[in-house]
């Protein structure tokens, strides 16, 4: 299987869970995470991710206390 055919890691975001601690922002190696201006149901400004920049490394998943990020594999 060539590298082009291998699976790709894609981030799924759950902004409704975010409590705005911002641990993910300095942890992201690509600076793809920023703060949204919208307010979620819990009353916090959640983070948002630039999907073009994201490489699906999972650093944000590891540091997040509120399970906002998931990394899924797609073809």
């Amino acid at each position: 299987m060539s590298k082009k055919d291998s699976k790709k890691s894609v981030l799924t975001l759950h902004p409704e869970r975010c409590k705005g601690c911002r641990y993910c922002i300095p942890t992201c190696p690509k600076d793809a995470i920023s703060v949204s201006e919208k307010i979620n149901q819990k009353g916090y400004k959640p983070v948002m991710v630039d999907m073009e920049t994201c490489i699906g490394c999972g650093s944000c998943y590891t540091i997040c206390p509120d399970y906002v990020f998931e990394i899924k594999e797609v073809q």
Partner: peptide, 11 residues
């Protein structure tokens, strides 16, 4: 790359 999904125990 490894999938990082929310574990099943976190309901």
């Amino acid at each position: 790359m490894v999938e990082r999904l929310i574990p099943t125990a976190l309901v």
